[in-house]
């Protein structure tokens, strides 16, 4: 978003020494956010494969988030400490990565108890009968899901 570069405009009008940023930067950010939102809705309609669509959607969301953090939350003009904290917010990514890596590297089976017809399952849901007669039987769907994964 290089067009958003603006001079910090050090308007030291009071003792707080707080930078007042021009309204135009906020307007441009808002415009960019709206454009990105339209793009994300539009991109979701184009078949890019599951991964492609996900990457595009999350990439756009991250861009939008970055814009909000940098301009609306003033991190761009903040102290390095604030920047450090903004980065620390990504700590949950290792949590996500490590946990998903676990599931990616082992055989993760559909829970057998999902199958209401399996007498070995621990607890069949009482109400499963009411929702069980969908187009495919639950068993078929469970198997289809497992096949789809591996």
């Amino acid at each position: 978003m290089s067009e958003l570069t603006l001079d910090p405009h050090n308007d030291s009008h009071d003792e707080h020494n707080h930078h007042v940023h021009p309204v135009s930067s906020y307007l441009k950010t808002l415009g960019a956010l709206f454009v990105l939102m339209v793009i994300t809705v539009w991109a979701a309609q184009i078949p890019l494969g599951s991964w492609g669509n996900n990457l595009v959607a999350m990439g756009i969301a991250t861009t939008k988030a970055t814009l909000v953090v940098l301009y609306f939350m003033h991190v761009r003009y903040g102290t390095s400490l604030v920047k450090l904290w903004a980065i620390l917010g990504f700590l949950w990514v290792p949590l996500l990565g490590f946990t998903l890596a676990d599931y990616a590297t082992r055989q993760y089976e559909m829970v057998p108890t999902w199958n209401a017809n399996d007498k070995g399952s621990a607890l069949a849901r009482d109400r499963s009968g009411t929702v069980g007669d969908s187009k495919k039987s639950m068993e078929e769907q469970t198997e289809a899901n497992v096949r789809g994964r591996f």
Partner: peptide, 17 residues
């Protein structure tokens, strides 16, 4: 809970995190 379609190991991941 597996009975409800979840994964108990996920709980352990999140709890021990």
């Amino acid at each position: 809970s597996p009975e409800l379609g979840g994964d108990p190991v996920l709980f352990q991941h999140m709890f021990w995190f």
